[in-house]
Write a protein that binds this DNA or RNA. Structure first.
Length: 306
RNA sequence: GCCGCUUUAGCUCAGUUGGUAGAGCAAAGGACUGAAAAUCCUUGUGUCCUCGGUUCAAUUCCGAGAGGCGGCA
């Protein structure tokens, strides 16, 4: 098997599809993994984020796992920069990088490159949030329409997140978000083998259910307990992850039963998996396979790497 | 056994003074310009429990039967 210096593999799929197991059996020899999962970058989120076992990480070098504390901010921009560095380093070692994870947004921008728009500013965002809080979302959308009619047209009036971001960009640059161009083609020299993992709905739901059960057995509650002891709040970026956020949601609404907690995690995971699939399907050039289809996977690798 | 209430979307229930029905939740589909496990959008045909009667027309009224809940025996 010849190793092309430009070789790069993407491995993605919805939560619970079986990415980690596949890494274990196919990519342990001569490969290094670059994590593309927005929650596994955080330390202390081991069980709830379904982080790979230490034994796997010991066998296959992993990059971008455990690089931040769960209260620290991260973004696609940082992901792309750090993933680029990781890929370079892996190649220097004569190994093949496998970008693996479930955050479709990260894959998209890694493949196409970042838009020209500026990175997010926490302080400006805070200001905007305060204004939105005070004057209401309708007002915010109208404000946006004044300074950036193109974005206002595209962003739905209920989409707090995107309205805030668009206003933030205008405030910090004086230019509308829509004036920054978005790349539509893969970056120069980037020709990865894109492997998408897919299972049918019932199969995936069942696996998600089993995995949540397993997380509870592994001590998800204890993990949350120690995060709380560290001062965790629902506002920590890491606490937005499924398996953690449900704790805060249920706390807020009063009651709390383990059964309820598990069911909520299962439901949110299944919904997330669906959103992931929608996003992944919009990425071009993907070879979709079932994780158990060894022959298909082997032939894809063979063809790509020779 | 008797009496009362109840049976409508996967679930909880509205509703039609008789013209074949609609909310919430669940579910399905979609979007994605540096927080993305985030944020947001769209989508409701279902023997209105069954059988019979009245009626131009019944899920709606009447009768019987069946299931559920409660009370009395």
């Amino acid at each position: 098997m010849k190793r092309n210096n430009a070789s790069l593999i993407f491995l993605f799929g919805p939560t619970g599809v079986g990415k980690t197991a596949l890494l274990e059996s196919y990519f342990s020899e001569g490969y290094s993994v670059v994590n593309a999962d927005s929650k596994q970058i955080y330390r202390h989120l081991d069980i709830g984020s379904a982080k790979p076992e230490p034994s796997l990480v010991a066998r296959i070098p992993h990059y971008l796992v455990d690089i931040l504390d769960p209260w620290e901010d991260f973004s696609v921009g940082q992901f792309v920069h750090r993933a680029d560095e990781a890929v370079d380093e892996i190649r220097l070692q004569g190994r093949i990088p496998v970008v693996s994870g479930g955050t479709a947004f990260y894959f998209k921008h890694f493949l196409y490159g970042l838009p020209e728009s500026p990175k997010s500013s926490a302080s400006v965002r805070r200001e905007i949030n305060a204004l939105v809080q005070e004057n209401g979302l309708t007002w915010a959308h109208e404000e946006l329409a004044k300074v950036d009619p193109v974005s206002a047209e595209k962003i739905h009036q209920n989409d707090t997140y995107r309205i805030t971001r668009a206003l933030e960009v205008f405030r910090s640059t004086g230019c509308p978000l829509s004036s920054f161009s978005v790349p539509t083609l893969p970056r120069e020299g980037l020709t990865p083998l894109i492997i998408g993992l897919e299972r049918d709905r019932e199969e995936l739901s069942l696996r998600i259910r089993q995995r949540v059960e397993q997380m509870m057995e592994q001590g998800l509650m204890d993990e949350i307990g120690s995060l709380l002891a560290m001062g965790a709040t629902a506002q920590w970026p890491g606490m937005q992850g499924i398996g953690y956020r449900e704790y805060f949601t249920l706390q807020e609404s009063g009651g709390f039963s383990v059964e309820e907690f598990k069911e909520l995690i299962v439901r949110n995971s299944i919904r997330y998996a669906k959103r992931q699939m929608t996003f992944f399907r919009s990425i071009g050039g993907v070879s979709w396979i079932h994780p158990d289809d060894r022959a298909q996977l082997e032939s894809l690798l063979e063809t790509y790497l020779s």
